[in-house]
């Protein structure tokens, strides 16, 4: 049993960077029950032995998927979304001459974070009217991404965080819950992608969200993710993490944002010379 858990957590860490903390150990059995049943395996020890012997890639993916914590909700931490709408987006808008807004929801799970942003932008249609809005949403879990793309959420999910007006406006009832409107779905580019082996399109994102993703990463892995996020940022980008997560102590790819509580930005470049008649020196 203990050996089984060790094998499984090694697999999880190799694939996702996540360390299975002892407190989460008890979850392993519950999480893997459906897989054990589906494959007719008696217990975790036997599953682990099976994985070690056959290295079945499909089963590996299933196991990793089941062990990931995909918890999410619409407008998770509502104050953050208020801050995005009322402060961060106007800040970005004022600095973008090209009328192009690029957002990246990294570790998006089943998509609630990206959909919440899309809803906000659609509700403020008069502001974003003539803008090109691109929302990229990535997650390592293929199952989560497939569900995010479908945009179908059970009743219990839409009730958490979504107002009834947004539900009526942006979702339609379907047999097994509520489906995000075609307009919302078309706004978001959902892609399966690993933060440690990224293939998703690069470039500078204006707003980056990587919330409740790095919780179970080692310090070294977090550093890698911050470096990746920094490579996809520009001078005015804003980075948001989950409540209780911090970018401090990870070198200096990001510093606390001077204006937005709990947000981060790249450290401002120190100009070598003061602006002179020739314009700013770099």
């Amino acid at each position: 049993m203990q050996r089984g858990i060790r094998v499984l957590s090694a697999l999880l860490e190799a694939r996702t960077g996540q360390v299975l903390s002892p407190e989460r150990g008890w979850r392993v059995e519950t999480a893997l029950k459906p897989i054990l049943r589906a494959h007719g395996l008696q217990d975790i020890g036997i599953l682990a032995a099976h994985l070690t012997r056959y290295r079945d890639p499909r089963l590996e993916i299933e196991v990793v998927d089941a062990l990931l914590n995909n918890e999410s909700s619409f407008f998770r931490d509502p104050q953050i979304f208020e801050m995005i709408r009322q402060q961060i987006l106007p800040h970005i808008r004022a600095r973008k001459q090209d009328r192009r807004l690029r957002v990246w929801s990294a570790g998006c799970s089943t998509g609630q974070e990206a959909y919440s942003l899309a809803i906000q932008l659609c509700n403020d249609v008069e502001v974003w009217d003539r803008w090109r809005v691109e929302i990229l949403a990535t997650d390592i879990s293929a199952t989560a991404i497939a569900r995010a793309r479908d945009g179908i959420f059970p009743q219990i999910d839409v009730q958490r965080g979504l107002s009834i007006n947004d539900l009526l406006k942006w979702f339609e009832p379907v047999a097994d819950g509520w489906r995000a409107s075609a307009q919302l779905r078309a706004m978001i580019d959902f892609r399966q992608d690993n933060l440690f082996n990224p293939r998703a399109p690069g470039g500078g994102y204006d707003l980056l969200l990587c919330r409740n993703v790095m919780l179970y990463f080692t310090q070294e892995r977090r550093q890698k993710v911050f470096d990746l996020l920094a490579r996809h940022s520009h001078d005015h980008s804003v980075l948001l993490l989950g409540a209780g997560e911090t970018a401090m102590g990870h070198g200096d790819p990001f510093v606390a944002h001077p204006e937005f509580r709990g947000a981060y930005r790249r450290p401002p470049v120190q100009p070598l010379y003061v602006d002179g008649p020739m314009g700013p020196a770099v």
Partner: peptide, 9 residues
């Protein structure tokens, strides 16, 4: 969670 979120809304 549902009631809490609706009361906040």
């Amino acid at each position: 969670e549902t009631l809490e979120s609706k009361l906040a809304i």
